[in-house]
C-alpha cells in the first residue's frame, strides 16, 4: 500500500487544483457570452451544423480519423518494449528503431502528399 501512496497524493492534488480553478473562475471571472462561446467546442474549428437526416459531415474528418487511427495504434508495439527495454538490450532498441523508421516512411508519404493539410 505504501508504494501507491504518492500516486494517491498526486491524484488528490490534481483533483483539488482542478476543482479550485473551476470554482474560482466561475466565481470571479466576468460573464460575457457571445455566439462563439455558446457553441459546442470542436477542437477550435467551426462546429459542424447538426446533420440533417442522419449524419453527413465533411470528408476531411474521415481522412484525419483514418490517419489518427493508424499512427495511434502502431504505437501499441512500443508499450511492451518500453516496459522492458532494458531487458531487451540493444537488439530491442535496433528493432524498435527500424519499426519507428518504417512508420516514419508512411508519415513522410502522408505529409508530402498533403494528407495533413486541412484545406
Amino acid at each position: 500500500m505504501n508504494a501507491y501512496a504518492p500516486i494517491l497524493v498526486l491524484g488528490g492534488l490534481g483533483a483539488g487544483f482542478a476543482i479550485f480553478s473551476v470554482i474560482t473562475a466561475s466565481l470571479t471571472g466576468p460573464k460575457r457570452y457571445n455566439r462563439a462561446k455558446l457553441e459546442a467546442y470542436e477542437c477550435g474549428i467551426e462546429p459542424t451544423p447538426q446533420p440533417a437526416g442522419g449524419g453527413r459531415f465533411p470528408i476531411k474528418y474521415y481522412l484525419t480519423a483514418m490517419l489518427f487511427i493508424v499512427f495511434d495504434i502502431e504505437i501499441v508495439f512500443l508499450y511492451p518494449w518500453a516496459v522492458s527495454f532494458d531487458a531487451l538490450g540493444l537488439f530491442g532498441l535496433v528493432e524498435m528503431l527500424l519499426f519507428v523508421l518504417t512508420v516514419f516512411v508512411a508519415y513522410a508519404y502522408v505529409w508530402r502528399r498533403g494528407g495533413l493539410e486541412w484545406d
Partner: peptide, 22 residues
Amino acid sequence: IIAFFTMVVAAAEVVVGLAIIV
C-alpha cells in the same frame, strides 16, 4: 501478444475499409 497484433491489423483494416467505403 497476438491480441496486440490483432489490434494493429484491425486498425490497418479500418483505414483501408473506411477509404474504400467512403
